[in-house]
Nucleic acid binder design. Structure first.
Lengths: 230, 230
DNA sequence: TGTACATCAGTGAACGCGCGTTCACTGATGTAC
DNA sequence: TGTACATCAGTGAACGCGCGTTCACTGATGTAC
């Protein structure tokens, strides 16, 4: 291995170690991520971090993109788990549970992606592609189902006009194989998945519902009914 | 007015002015509320705040309780707006839109109530009564509807066992007039309302859906269908 | 009616801590001739 | 093969700022005799 490659590899390892430690700090501190604290845990002086990230915000951005990819990986892995590809409802539920499991295992990262915006931090454009992977994994199930004839198109009548226009744009760029009305139903179900996970994770279920997993499963099944998933 | 009452009134006014300014700071700084900044805006020295709030956390708690009450007020006012009390769907939708409108008008407060938990801050027990007002306003509509015979009980069969136990407890303490299955459907719809508002407010709709209000309305109608609201 | 005392809002200085970012530097490693 | 040079990770000090909380204090106001 040439020297340049060795240096590049060492550099990459440092970057991923910094991110690992930063993720650990997120768990305890929320989005108030401190570069100095990360540097301390790395056994470095705080200015050394600047060899790897030009600013705190860039580090946050990297963590956000990584987070979206990790969640997307979890969602796709969940879908791949289901061997009976024709079992649309099973696939949908498995993906939703994978999302919830990832969120429970990485609450601070989840909050960084889906919680209150970090004050003073503006998410750059580059996060959107990574962010789209999780909903894409869900919508892909519907595309499969529609292609197989297992899902019927309710027709565009159920969407209000301006919403139909927005949905048509999304459909054109990402989900050409799915009728608008089904795409919209899938979006509702995805938003409910997000809502149910956030509701639980952000403490709103405390002292009310103890059977968390069963309750989540129940809600996701209601969403399958709403979509019309067999 | 006796002197003691005058002093008490002045004190109450100071407290509410501090909270007002603190709310204004929340808008720009998120939950990183700074006592010193609030004091500066009050034209006081920072230590003077301690005459009114024993600590920063107590001030945060006061803001949270106020926030829940403000949202509860908005929800109840929305319900009261609908003169045809038998129009259950109209009442439900109006309350949901009131919730969304309040959230859009007070994004930082909404985030404080329903967003990522503030690092290092543990919500005390006293917030729960205030927090319950908004879902109670929604569930009240269903109670009315069931009492009037406009809603039919789907029967407890649709709830998984452990969830049914949790729901039964809630029913017993707060909503004795409503069958468990309807209460659970209402809870799902409330969670979706929260989810849709958070999804929009926390930026997940950016660049995807522009017809925000119509999209929200559409989703809330889907929830009315799920509940079985006429 | 006048005086001693209590109450309490607000002051100002201080403690001890944290932060992001910049900058000139050291010293090890690799490269070119 | 040996030497001058370039690269670059990491150092350490500093800048200029912020924070929550404590504490002894001043000074105005009201109360009791």
């Amino acid at each position: 291995m040439p020297a340049a490659a060795i240096r590049a590899r060492a550099r990459a390892e440092m970057i991923s170690e910094i991110k690992m430690i930063a993720r650990r700090h997120l768990e305890t501190e929320g989005a108030n991520l401190s570069l100095r604290a990360v540097a301390r845990d790395m056994g470095m002086v705080s200015s050394a971090i600047y060899r790897y990230f030009p600013s705190r915000d860039e580090l946050l951005t990297a963590l956000i993109i990584d987070g979206y990819h990790a969640l997307g990986d979890a969602a796709e892995a969940g879908d791949a788990e289901v061997t009976d590809r024709a079992d649309l409802r099973g696939r949908w539920l498995t993906v939703c549970h994978s999302i919830r499991r990832w969120a429970l295992a990485h609450p601070a990262e989840y909050a960084l992606l889906f919680g209150s915006p970090v004050p003073g931090y503006a998410a750059p454009q580059d996060t959107t592609a990574a962010a789209a992977r999780t909903p894409a994994a869900l919508i892909g199930i519907l595309t499969d189902g529609f292609a197989a004839g297992a899902l019927t198109d309710p027709g565009p009548g159920e969407l209000p006009g301006p919403v139909q226009a927005d949905v048509a744009t999304v459909r054109a760029t990402l989900f050409a194989g799915l009728p608008e009305a089904l795409l919209a139903r899938g979006a509702t179900a995805w938003i409910h998945c997000f809502g149910a996970v956030s509701f639980e994770l952000f403490g709103q279920l405390n002292g009310v519902i103890e059977a968390r997993k069963e309750y989540f499963d129940h809600q996701m099944r209601q969403m399958c009914d709403l979509i019309g998933l067999p």
